[in-house]
Amino acid sequence: MPENEETVQVETEPQGTEPAPEAEQASTDPWADPAAARKEIEKLRKESAGWRTKYQETKPLAQKAKELEDAKKSDQERLTEQLTAAEKRIQSVQQRAVRSEVKALAAAEFADPEDAHAFLDLTSYVDDDGDIHTDAIQQDLKELLKRKPHLAKPTDTSPRAPKTDRTQGSSGNGSRTPNDPANVFADFMKQGLARGH
């Protein structure tokens, strides 16, 4: 070998780690000893069987809890539907009451009180407590008559002359048939007068 060449020494174990003694490994690792491993396996099997038993025991309870929760949800849904239906009925009754109030207040000035509620927003006259604001209705009716005066009662209340009906009387009927009640009556009168003379 030449003197200039360096010899390289190869280490087979990494530096800084010490090999663990076998006795220490055996005490912490149950799988190193077959007898200890069997004991550990039996222990884990018993533990697993216990957990399976507990699971089987609690499974019906979990199912009952789920059923109760579902029943509770359906009760809530049923109650929600009932509440919605009741609110709709209340709104309907309130609207009828407002409509009646509008008609009653409009009867004095409107030609047809039915027309008054057709032009008004009836929902705006009921507050959260269900009270009807008649002052607001009267104000809106006055404004409605200003905008649409043709809805008001006519100011001329004098009696009107009846329209002529040309179908009444002899001038409108033209020629009469022999079975016409007027002809029959006229013949009856003529016969009665002829007998009395």
Score class of each variant (00 low, 15 high):
1 M>Y: 12
3 E>W: 11
3 E>I: 13
5 E>I: 13
5 E>Y: 14
9 Q>G: 04
10 V>L: 11
11 E>K: 07
12 T>Q: 09
12 T>S: 10
13 E>R: 04
17 T>M: 08
18 E>F: 06
18 E>C: 05
20 A>V: 15
21 P>R: 12
23 A>P: 01
26 A>I: 13
30 P>Y: 04
33 D>F: 01
33 D>S: 02
34 P>Q: 10
35 A>S: 10
37 A>H: 04
37 A>I: 03
37 A>S: 08
38 R>S: 06
38 R>L: 14
39 K>N: 11
40 E>W: 10
44 L>R: 14
50 G>K: 07
53 T>E: 15
53 T>I: 10
55 Y>P: 00
57 E>F: 00
57 E>G: 03
60 P>I: 03
60 P>Y: 03
61 L>F: 03
62 A>P: 00
68 L>D: 14
68 L>S: 10
69 E>M: 08
72 K>G: 14
74 S>F: 03
74 S>T: 10
75 D>T: 11
75 D>P: 04
76 Q>K: 12
80 T>Q: 11
80 T>M: 08
81 E>W: 07
86 A>P: 03
90 I>F: 13
92 S>K: 15
94 Q>L: 07
94 Q>S: 06
95 Q>V: 06
96 R>T: 08
97 A>Y: 02
97 A>I: 05
99 R>E: 12
99 R>G: 07
99 R>Q: 10
103 K>D: 07
104 A>G: 10
105 L>C: 02
109 E>S: 12
109 E>V: 07
111 A>P: 00
112 D>M: 00
113 P>L: 01
116 A>V: 02
116 A>N: 00
119 F>A: 04
128 D>V: 11
128 D>G: 15
128 D>P: 09
128 D>M: 11
128 D>F: 12
129 D>S: 15
129 D>M: 08
135 D>F: 09
138 Q>Y: 04
138 Q>T: 13
139 Q>M: 05
140 D>C: 00
140 D>S: 02
142 K>W: 06
145 L>Y: 02
145 L>N: 00
148 K>Q: 04
152 A>C: 02
155 T>A: 05
157 T>H: 01
158 S>N: 12
158 S>R: 14
160 R>F: 00
162 P>L: 05
164 T>M: 10
164 T>W: 07
164 T>G: 14
167 T>R: 08
169 G>S: 03
171 S>A: 14
176 R>C: 02
179 N>D: 09
180 D>M: 02
186 A>R: 15
188 F>T: 12
189 M>V: 15
189 M>W: 11
193 L>E: 04
194 A>R: 03
197 H>I: 05
